[in-house]
Amino acid sequence: MSLDKATVRSIAELARIEVAEDELDHLAGELSNILTFVEQLAQVDTEGVAPMTSVVAMSLPMREDAVTDGHQAEAVLANAPEAQDGFFTVPKVVE
């Protein structure tokens, strides 16, 4: 599978990664190569095999419904670029 420039531009935007216009061709080539490499898996006959979502044959371990965490607003906010009155603050995002 090969990706065109427009698709790469859109993927970059969705991932919030700034990609210069003159890098798009190069990236399209690299990403296409990766996809082609992975697509080799499609050659394996998977008829009747359930899709695998994990490489370990285990199911999800569960926790009990108990409050064991929290009450650490200071620690949560410690690395925030900006905070005020116990809130994170960010440039205004409003509809």
């Binding site: 926790r63 419904d65 108990a66 409050v67 064991t68 965490d69 929290g70 009450h71 650490q72 607003a73 620690a75 949560v76 906010l77 009155d85 116990g86 809130f87 994170f88």
Partner: peptide, 22 residues
């Protein structure tokens, strides 16, 4: 009592960012 994937509380109306795990 606790959140879907963490042990922080779910009560409504707490102080901001008080019921937050990492």
């Amino acid at each position: 009592k606790a959140k879907l994937f963490s042990g922080a509380a779910t009560d409504f109306g707490a102080e901001p960012n008080d019921q937050v795990s990492f």
